[in-house]
Design a protein around this nucleic acid. Structure first.
Lengths: 147, 147
DNA sequence: CCCAATAAAGTGTAATTACACCTAATGGAG
DNA sequence: CTCCATTAGGTGTAATTACACTTTATTGGG
């Protein structure tokens, strides 16, 4: 008997299992990040931008975050209003908008990372660091396999 | 050196890693489920209700789905309008509303499961059934540890 | 050179999510 | 019995998400 058969029972739904686990975990991080005025969606964006010297095109940024491009557009506008990021047109290609983190964005990130680190430490303590190491690798493999 | 230190770099964010993986996977299931008129949020609700003979209280249902109670309320109302579920008051406790799946809900689930099974099979094929088995256990442990 | 195909990005809109708050019912201490 | 802390559940509102569509720019074939 194909061992896959049992996994075709909705109890084993890949999507729902990931979804509900993500929900539970998200609560921990949202609680900590609230203190620094960054949402759980905004923090990873700034984090990614800090690592992208010279700015990144919207599409590239969206891909790196595994995020819908139009969702990224919406998430970016409060960050832009708050002066934490800027969007310049690319001189080489007028279609492209390069997103860049500002100085204000960098200092907000310093605060954000403190809050984030509390959430991460709390989570790792509860689930176990070793457990997370292997889980993280598995998740990366899943994303690679599906995109 | 504490091996946890490295994991306190935002690249290893538990929340964001789960979130983005869930997003990627969700796309596969949403695509298939669309054909039967169920959303990726509605399918697990009906599925859980089918397994709960005699109906379930809202709070209990929310807990089983690891879902915010108020989110469940909103998700239930289109299902109720469509006649797929009913909400009766509990005769023993007027505060409690028992949610139950209807016959129409059951037959919609039959259709839904066909679509779901396609998505699940597709996903398992890409990520590997064995890989998912261990991942699923890990995810369950994470939920247990945090809630 | 021209134009059709492609690519980058934004917008309309609708679904989803969840926090803060509200109401109603219950139940136990005094 | 009375009161109030607790519990179940719904609503206002705002943030988040993403599909379908549009606009603007680039590019490559003829």
């Amino acid at each position: 008997m194909d061992p896959t058969d049992d996994l075709l029972n909705p109890i084993h739904c890949v999507s729902h299992n990931l979804q509900k686990t993500a929900r539970v975990v998200a609560g921990v991080y949202a609680g900590e990040l609230r203190s620094c005025g960054l949402s759980r969606g905004q923090f990873p964006i700034l984090q990614q931008l800090e690592a992208s010297a010279g700015g990144v095109a919207m599409s590239v940024l969206a891909q790196r975050l595994y995020m819908d491009r139009t969702t990224l557009t919406r998430n970016l506008s409060p960050l832009e209003k708050a002066g934490l990021v800027v969007r310049d047109s690319d001189p080489d290609d007028a279609r492209v908008r390069r997103v860049m983190i500002t100085e204000a964005g960098r200092s907000r990130l310093v605060e954000g990372r403190k809050a984030w680190r509390r959430a991460q430490a709390m989570t790792l303590e509860r689930i176990g660091a070793d457990s997370w190491k292997s889980l993280e690798d598995d998740l990366r493999r899943v994303r690679k396999a599906l995109s």
